[in-house]
Design a protein around this nucleic acid. Structure first.
Lengths: 224, 224
DNA sequence: AGAGTGAAAACTGTTGACAATCCGAAAATG
DNA sequence: CATTTTCGGATTGTCAACAGTTTTCACTCT
């Protein structure tokens, strides 16, 4: 365990971020990177020593993480890193699919010319990554692409739910390593989505986005 | 403002519910009933006096309410009862629609005979309420009907999201009072949903449920 | 040996006090 | 008179100590 004077430094530098949110981000990182495995109890005392803050902010941070489904609290026993069953993960994929479908439908009706251009360029960039076999970069761009869609769709809650479900599903599958073939298929689906949005065809955009996520679910299932 | 020794009584009676959750429920009630209007700051000191607990549980309860979108926190300024614009409310209706659609599709594939029967009976009961003009009871049954669908669909997160979005939208529209005509239309849609579920026709169930919620959105919009 | 028992340790729940920050009003300045 | 500054009260952020609950583990008894 490392002592973290860095949090001290952060807080003394500027008080615009509360300790609670700092701890929140740190814990989220720990959980998503597997540093805190599924089912682990978030020991308030231990964490307060390691992170160098009192238990108050840690408790509040835990409550915030509860919101994203990353931890679950039990009365008088504390907060535990959530343990996700495969069934639950599949449910999350489905929910994410319908929300993404809705977001794309909205976007198809709202998107400005520059926004359409931005998305087309992202897809082209991903194409380039496939030919140059930069898988890591593709992975990153893919994430950014979907987040950007949710963002541009204009709905505050839509974005919140989409990103929240994205984090939650990462509890179980840390990373999907897929061959370049799979990447190619995936990006073809991206092209369909963007095409439908550029056409202003909301139903088609919705269908394409939904199917893309369902296919993602299948691709993940196949790796088990 | 009322003093609340009842909370004291509750907590001394049994320690199985934490003060945090008690305060959470109380605040939620206050917000949804309009006792705490939109935009109001949740003054921690004042609330701690009124509710008879210290500020810690109140802060944690506020964080929990943040999850359901009932309050929004600003650093160094505290938590405020969320103020919902009409556009945001419409978004919530849409999101709820797609989630309900998903839930009904799932249910169409999963529902047992007794569950199908239960739902048909609920719809019949609502029909009876319409003829006897028991609007309040219809309102209640309607709520129970939809919650039950989300529950029976089997998805933990699905249920959470559906109920959460339901609460959130209530920030803006406290209650939809509709004439018996409107009730009749609404229940006809319920029948379509149940029929599709009984047939095991997932796409039809999804479509019917989604349309029902979209129509609900329209009915609400018309009352403005 | 194994099941039950009870006390101690570890932990979460809660509290009141202190520190940092924000907000508004009065005072100072041009 | 308008604008900025300063100051005090109110409020949120954080902490350390206390209270209550759960868990652990040594001990007893069968």
């Amino acid at each position: 365990m490392e002592i973290s004077n860095d949090t001290q430094a952060l807080v003394s530098a500027r008080r615009e971020r509360s300790l609670t949110t700092i701890v929140r981000d740190r814990l989220e990182q720990m959980i998503l990177q597997g540093e805190l495995g599924a089912g682990t109890r978030l020991n308030e005392q231990a964490l307060s020593k390691v992170l160098g803050v009192s238990r108050g902010p840690i408790r509040e941070a835990a409550r915030l993480l509860e919101r994203d489904g990353l931890v679950a609290s039990v009365a008088n026993q504390g907060a535990f890193v959530r343990q996700l069953s495969i069934e639950e993960a599949l449910e999350l994929y489905d929910l994410r699919a319908v929300i993404a479908g809705y977001a794309c439908a909205q976007l198809a009706e709202r998107a400005s010319a520059v926004e359409k251009r931005e998305m087309r360029e992202m897809v082209e960039e991903m194409d380039r990554c496939i030919t140059t076999e930069e898988e890591a970069r593709y992975f990153e761009l893919n994430l950014a692409f979907h987040d950007r869609i949710a963002e541009l769709s204009g709905g505050r809650r839509t974005l919140e739910l989409y990103t929240s479900l994205g984090k939650e599903v990462r509890l179980l599958r840390r990373r999907v390593l897929r061959g370049t073939d799979s990447l190619r298929f995936s990006n073809e689906e991206h092209k369909q989505i963007v095409a439908a949005i550029e056409d202003g065809d909301a139903p088609a955009a919705r269908q394409a986005a939904e199917q893309h996520h369902i296919n993602g679910k299948r691709r993940w299932l196949d790796t088990l």
